[in-house]
Simulated scan of single mutants.
Amino acid sequence: MKVLDLFCGMGGFSYGLSKAGYEITGVDINKWVEKIFEKNCIGKAIIKDLKNDFIFDENPDIIVGGSPCKPWSTLNLKKRGSSHEDFVLMEKYFLHVLEIKPAVFVFENVVPVGKDKTLRKFIRKLRAHGYSIYETKIKYSDFGAAIARERYFAFGFYKDKSARKQFEKLLIGSKNSPKTVKHVIEKYRNKEEKEVPDHEWPNLKTIDKYLDKYETGKFGWYILDWNKPSPSFGNIMKTYILHPGFNNGGPKRTISIREAEAIFGFKDDFAFPEGMGKGMRYQMIADAVSPDFSYLIGGLLKTILLR
């Protein structure tokens, strides 16, 4: 089955779905995406600015995607909602669904988007056009991932209410214990920098000046706990998420790019292409859907669509 992944980024949706056996076409404005998809054998990548272009000729069975979240992010204290230049990209996602009418669509974004008036308008319009839609809040760690990130998801099934009901039942029944940080990154504890792909980190000399902030519990100021899933985090070049061994005789540093990938659910066979800066790699991870979750929903959708 064919999947069109809009705003695919590094491929959090695409990587998990490709592992589940789907044929992937990813679309993104970032020119590195083509090399990321090629290097990791994810599928085809199309470099397009979806503000100005549509992708109507791929004939997918499933459309997935999460438009940029800045218009609704609680961390964005400047332009919010419709005043943000990225707001229109959510509309472009749903216009693709309305034009192509895939058997299934999956939309992901930050939790506050669920109350957005424009989103509600498109949900009503999609229902009027025959989609049975299941909206829910997902915490990835509830489904076996090592990151406790929460996201809004909408799953739409074209002219098939029974498929929506079956999917909802299967998804709820798929909840599982989370992986811990230790489970996914302990293997890198004694690795030298760059000993494995992406195992590198910023050489920060000012961490000790901010140690009091790690006692506040505010977003981004975390020393990870070996025995728990990681809290959600952003770009580690901006929010210094510290290695769980920081206060216990371990590495006095942030988690590496490789460790961040592992926490999100990207397996050992995933690596960024040579030449990408640390900041961009960390940012792409922070923006990604957990492949642990996309792999799971890929399996559930096959159960339903191939029944």
Rank of each mutant, 00 (worst) to 15 (best):
P291F: 11
N52L: 10
F87I: 14
I223E: 07
F219V: 10
T180R: 00
F107T: 01
F167R: 01
W72C: 01
K191R: 11
D116W: 08
L6S: 04
T303K: 13
F87R: 12
K70M: 04
K228G: 02
G81D: 00
K44R: 15
F122R: 04
N247K: 14
G250D: 13
Y282S: 08
R281Y: 05
Y188N: 15
W32C: 06
G156W: 00
G234T: 09
Q283I: 03
D212C: 02
K267D: 13
L6V: 00
I47G: 08
I297G: 02
D28F: 00
F219N: 03
P202V: 02
K117I: 09
L119E: 03
N227K: 11
D268Q: 13
A128F: 10
S82R: 11
L211Q: 11
N248R: 12
F122C: 07
N59A: 08
E108Q: 08
F56D: 11
K51Q: 11
R127M: 10
P273I: 07
L211N: 12
L300K: 00
I47K: 09
K19A: 09
G26P: 03
L4R: 01
E85P: 14
Y188M: 13
P102V: 03
K19V: 08
D208P: 07
I257F: 04
L211Y: 12
K218L: 09
G277N: 13
K121P: 10
D292A: 01
M10R: 06
P68T: 09
W226N: 13
Y282V: 04
A146S: 15
K39N: 14
F153C: 07
T74V: 12
K228P: 03
A288K: 05
G65Y: 02
D61T: 03
F270C: 04
F122V: 04
P197K: 00
M90A: 07
K191S: 11
R151M: 05
K2L: 01
K159Q: 13
M280G: 07
Q166G: 13
Y131P: 01
H84I: 05
K115T: 07
D198T: 06
R164W: 09
Y15M: 02
W226V: 15
N176H: 13
L224C: 10
R307L: 15
Y214E: 03
T254S: 12
R258G: 06
Q166T: 12
K139W: 07
I207W: 01
K238I: 12
W221A: 06
I24E: 01
V3K: 04
W32L: 07
E274Y: 08
G275E: 08
V110E: 07
T74D: 07
L204N: 10
I304H: 04
I172R: 10
E215F: 13
K218Q: 12
A262N: 05
R127L: 04
F272N: 06
N176R: 15
L224R: 03
M10Y: 02
V110A: 02
S18K: 06
Y158Q: 10
F233V: 00
K101R: 14
L224Y: 03
K137L: 15
E274L: 08
A288T: 08
F153V: 04
D57W: 09
S67M: 06
D212M: 04
R189N: 13
K302N: 08
N52C: 05
G299F: 00
S83H: 12
N30W: 13
Q166P: 12
I133V: 11
K165I: 09
Y134R: 15
K161F: 11
I55Y: 09
D142L: 10
E150V: 09
I29K: 00
S256A: 09
V106G: 02
